[in-house]
Design a protein around this nucleic acid. Sequence first.
RNA 1: CGGGGUGUGGCGCAGUUGGCUAGCGCGCCGCGUUUGGGACGCGGAGGUCGAAGGUUCAAGUCCUUUCACCCCGACCA
Length: 573
Amino acid sequence: MKVSQLFGRTSKTEGIDYKTASHRLLIQAGYIRESTAGRYFFLPLGQAVQNKIIDVVRGHMNEVGSQEVLLPTLHPLELWRETNRTTTTGFELMKIEDRRGAEFALGGTAEEMAVDVVRKFNVSYKDLPFSVYQFSMKFRDELRARGGLLRVREFIMKDAYSFGTEAQFKDTYQAFWDAYKATFEDLGLKVDVVAADNGYIGGEYCHEFISQSDEGESRYFVDEQSGYAAHEDVAKFKVEDKNAGEELRELQEVDAERGTTMEDGVKLHNMPLWQQTKDVLYFDEATKRYVLALIRGDFDVNETKLMQAAGAWDLRHATEEEIREDLGSEPGFISPVGFPKKGKKTGREVVIVGDVSLRTVHNMYGGNNRLHKDLLNINIDRDYKLDVEADIALAQPGFISPDGGALVEKKGIEVGNIFQLGYHYSKLMHDAEFTDETGKRQKYYMGCYGIGIGRTLAAIVEAHHDDKGIIWPESIAPYRVYLVRLGQEEIVMQTAQSLYEDLTRAGVAVLYDDRTDIRAGEKFADADLLGIPYRVVVSAKTCAANQVEVKKRTETESQLTDRESVIKMVAGS
RNA sequence: CGGGGUGUGGCGCAGUUGGCUAGCGCGCCGCGUUUGGGACGCGGAGGUCGAAGGUUCAAGUCCUUUCACCCCGACCA
């Protein structure tokens, strides 16, 4: 390709509004251009990179035996109703109607569609396990797009769906895990694999592949020694015993002229924070129940864990009015001791969820559901009972991981994920079954596996750039060589042209800067900005020496060699 | 949806207490001089100043409404 004919152009002036490096560089170098927020034009260079990434991903998918398909973009809304996903969450689903009023979802993920096509074929145990995957445009009605390609409203995603028996699943999940590791390695991305929350996708466990970056939105914890890694939503940690050996003392009410914060309690009673009870009252809009979360005073409630434990979907904090008038308690003085089972006025059920850390403390202190009254020597089981006991604590940096090392907080870009779906979809959707060896119909056990192609592209730029521009890993560079011609002497014109042809013949993708009205500095600057791995220069100087100049984007010094060596060098590997 | 900010040729911006024909740099087109790290001269093209309504003799500038975009938050594979 000749630069003089390339559609899209670099820009000297950069958009100062763009905060992330990938956003700025990709636009400045002419890879992408914005349409509206979160929707991008992929120009020839950007599309070339995107296709390279797709090739790498496809290779690994094929390697694990997954089969490429293409599902429709418009999903019958009926299918989404079958799994309740039109209502279960505030999922950012785009909807559309045709002129006859038929309703569709613009595909944002395609579990239902995958099940729908598989059930049309009445599979048997002989077909299992198997998986299908596709590359397709996904639509998300994001409240706020950000960071260029990092969070968008339309993007190409590779999504795969596996079908099998429960016994087969472990191997399938591991195979995708390994394939993802290999994929991101090929793409030049170092990723952490972290345990995460399934959210509206359903299922019981999943893992995110996160490229560490300050620009990322995912916060997670890593135990560097053991390799334990988990998203902040699900991160576990060891809870040490405090005074669990202490003898139980008698429950006692005392006057408590204090404010409503934890610190006020600590000051008034002159006792440690960890010995205080933290009582947080929520209301779940989905199930219309109150959820009272109890935890040791020095910990915070992790709302994601809490929702899982309580079976809640849509938590909000209870209002002061609800606390006082419906539950007869007092903000800042809530206590599980004698807390009502139901709202007095509304009759709404109350679920008490306690953190496992409550077992590590005896003789706790806290409110007594009345203004300026506290209780001393509160003890679990004796003074109150839990409906659910679970880990609902929020991990913090420095806490001890389940494996014993200290948790370190990291930020990163989630470029891929793998989900165990189990029977979630096959149970919700009719006929999602296979025939087993005995002729009986069985639900199949599923997984799904996604990679955001555009986001991966952005993550690669975040990981590989300097102040001059992008530095593409060789595996996905849009071109392998940036051939710079300096000057218009006959010999230079001929040498550059024939080198261009020779390299192309040798199978090397060359971007040939044949512009005649552009000076050297600008060509070099563009070469750096574009980030092509090899820069080859042909000029009067190199021709006089009967050589060409070559420099890798990652290096600062160029070298002179003969043209055969250059061809060998860039064609190699 | 809350907070902050910005909308003036493709990009980056200036435009005073309202005042004459809306400017500058980059880029684009033409001619010439240049030519190893973002040259220079001359000549061009390109703008209903985000949109609508209002105030005024007069609006890029003031008022109202609205839309879009950027950043932070809430939300979210």
